[in-house]
Design a protein around this nucleic acid. Sequence first.
DNA 1: GCATCCAATTTTGCATACAATATATTTACG
DNA 2: CGTAAATATATTGTATGCAAAATTGGATGC
Lengths: 233, 233
Amino acid sequence: MLASALRLVDTEPPSLHADIVNQLRDFIVEGHLAPGMRVPERELCEKFDISRTPLREALKVLAAEGLIELLPNRGARVRQFSEADIRNLFEVISGLDFVAGRMACTRITDAGIAEIEAMHLEMYTCYLRRELTDYFRINQKIHQAIVDAVGNPVLSANYAKLNAVVRRLRYAANLVRRDRLGDAMREHEQIMDALRRRAGDELGLLMFEHMQRKCEAVCEHVQEQPEARQRPE
Amino acid sequence: MLASALRLVDTEPPSLHADIVNQLRDFIVEGHLAPGMRVPERELCEKFDISRTPLREALKVLAAEGLIELLPNRGARVRQFSEADIRNLFEVISGLDFVAGRMACTRITDAGIAEIEAMHLEMYTCYLRRELTDYFRINQKIHQAIVDAVGNPVLSANYAKLNAVVRRLRYAANLVRRDRLGDAMREHEQIMDALRRRAGDELGLLMFEHMQRKCEAVCEHVQEQPEARQRPE
DNA sequence: GCATCCAATTTTGCATACAATATATTTACG
DNA sequence: CGTAAATATATTGTATGCAAAATTGGATGC
């Protein structure tokens, strides 16, 4: 998903380098490297079967994305996000959700709306059955679908990048704070309603506020369970 | 300006690598390399007095930012922006302006408002005197100041990066379409008014719409004068 | 005279090598 | 026995080297 979004903004054929960046990003986002941990260059070189040069190029890119930080002469570390960091990220993401909602209404096809409607129903089913993993997965898909419906590769790419960073956190928050789930579901109902009516002004604000609330939920969760302080080494 | 914004998101002491990225970005943004042109690795190595390895690392980062594109086995080229590209960029930027306006109102100090007020008056003077270069420069400063007033490094960094890409174009548009200037000035009056009242809801939308209109102005300009098709080589 | 094919050169992408810096281990000393 | 200096090791950052691919120049054929 992220790979394809990023592919759109670079307009070139699939390149080896981009693949390594994406593989490494996924590897980190999926939590194989604990936050605060050193990024083991040699290990990763062996894992991806490449030399240090292309790996280090990828590290610079991921550092620019904010996923890792580069300490001069002391290598790369997986970034640890404080509550403030998370709020900052969500603030930017919600701004993108705002434009996404607003613009999607003017450009999405009827078929596109139908697709999102289908996902929404599917998510509702998961909600009723309390299948949280699937609920979360479809939730993400809906947001990405609305963003992609705008047909703006720059938006899609930036959205995907920022989301990569907070993905795990959002998941955890949904799992923990079950009472949030009902509110989120109601907000999604409103979002669908505005989308059906192609009420862009309304949808933009709804999505913005929806993300702001999701931010609060995630932050509350992070406070309770300070996100895997797994030996910052 | 951009360098400092980016420094905030990376939390490390100034590194040589980051410097090269910033130098190279400025070099491109300032127009020393024509859009569509090949990026001459060897020349730049000599210019910055470094070897190819760190230069190539910088190129990957700038490619991720969308400033250049990497063609496999055919090196880096300075990206040429179509009208669609510019619209896409502005769409994202205006989303960031939306959050910026909204959030700035809740966090900016009275002193901060006073500073922006001062810049606004200075800009108005330039407007009256038709000093377009200064007008434009202060205009940019005001937007950046509102964004920075939010106190969100992620927002500031992303905003600065996206703006780097369109900076020259905006400048050109303001110079060409003089009738736009009066409208822009009126919009800025409204923006100042909302900021004084700390009316976040209002300011967010005002800034969003302001950027949308600026986008239109830039695009009209680009159509007339298809942005330096200087031998795409 | 123009297009096409082939060799020579340049450029790219990756691997490796090497100096500088940080980390770990050992050793000396209080 | 604990602490600190000193050495050894590993890791980082950059330069260089080399194979593969692309570009260039020129010769050949039509």
